[in-house]
Design a binder for these strands. Structure first.
Length: 297
DNA sequence: CTTGGGTCCTGTGCGC
DNA sequence: TGCGCACAGGACCCAA
């Protein structure tokens, strides 16, 4: 079993878990326990957040996006990125203790107090904390998405949305000399994939991570686009089941227990039927690629 | 425009 | 047993 890093499916699961608890609630108080995460918090972040209502809690790529309704000013957007180890922890109004792991995206021990960087209190008593030991996460604030934030400006299509298909992928791959692995990690091509799901999608599509994007060809792209969608959709389903499970047994929620086919399985026998090759690992763009050289061409 | 490399951060797990 | 180091990862930034 492997804890998974927050890529699109994990972020979506966090969104679904949190949305019903915070939508429509007003932030009474927000406390920053430090001035920065990966980047500094926006100027006057706490002051501008206080008093605002979370009108809608959405997602774009790996970003959580809250539409905030401010009584004293214009609506704005609050963006959060979980980085590698970022987690939101929710305490419902009646509860007295923080519930560590609730909506966390990975198997993790309780977070030390020193890693809790943001504390939010809502007007109904709901509390929300953001913890991130490695501080690869960050938050931002802006008036309009797409134009207002450097993080959203150049994002490609949502892989599960209507704007993503083989045609788009094929067009984007044209002339790209970079390996398909690097190509799919490029958020301008398709938004929300990370190292794990790129490895899995390429395995599912039978494509070598080393293949140049420009040399994919229509046939492989026709396998790749659905593979990307399938691998993400199934992971979201798995995340959804962890959300449902939590309602019945407390404690273990939000923990993904994905069964990856190649990721993290170096040396193991390939899971494809009839294939006896072993899963290989190599480094691309400074990150591990796991693949089966017999199945992926 | 494309591509590659450096940087940020810290807990974990390995080898010696 | 303890130390040092590679590794995990996303996204920005800069240079060529």
């Amino acid at each position: 079993m492997m804890a998974s890093m927050p890529e699109l499916p994990e972020v979506e699961t966090v969104r679904r878990g949190l949305a019903p608890h915070i939508e429509g609630r007003r932030i009474k108080r927000l406390v920053l326990n430090r001035a920065d995460l990966r980047f500094p918090f926006p100027k006057d972040f706490a002051a501008r957040m206080e008093g605002a209502v979370v009108a809608r809690f959405t997602r774009r790529a790996k970003y959580l996006l809250a539409e905030m309704q401010s009584p004293k000013g214009k609506p704005f957007f609050w963006l959060s990125h979980l980085g590698m180890t970022g987690r939101f922890m929710l305490t419902p109004p009646q509860a007295t203790t923080l519930e560590p792991g609730l909506y966390a995206h990975e198997v993790a021990p309780p977070v030390a107090a020193k890693h809790i960087h943001v504390d939010i209190a809502f007007d109904d008593g709901t509390k929300l904390a953001f913890a991130d030991p490695r501080r690869f996460g960050f938050m931002d604030m802006f008036a309009a998405p797409e134009t207002g934030s450097p993080f959203l400006k150049h994002l490609g299509p949502e892989p599960l949305g209507n704007d993503f298909n083989e045609g788009v992928l094929l067009a984007a791959a044209k002339g790209r000399k970079t390996p398909v692995k690097n190509f799919l990690l490029d958020q301008r091509v398709v938004a929300g994939l990370g190292n794990i799901y790129v490895c899995e999608a390429l395995f599912m599509a039978g494509i070598s991570p080393k293949r140049k994007a420009a040399n994919l060809g229509a046939k492989r792209v026709a396998r790749l686009a659905p593979a990307i969608r399938d691998v993400l959709a199934r992971a979201i389903e798995a995340g959804g089941s962890t959300l449902r499970d939590f309602a019945h047994e407390d404690g273990a929620m939000g923990y993904f227990q994905h069964d990856f086919k190649v990721y993290g399985r170096e040396g193991e026998v390939c899971s494809a039927p009839e294939c006896s090759a072993s899963v290989k690992r190599m480094v691309q763009v400074g990150r591990s690629s796991f693949y089966c050289s017999a199945c992926q061409k």
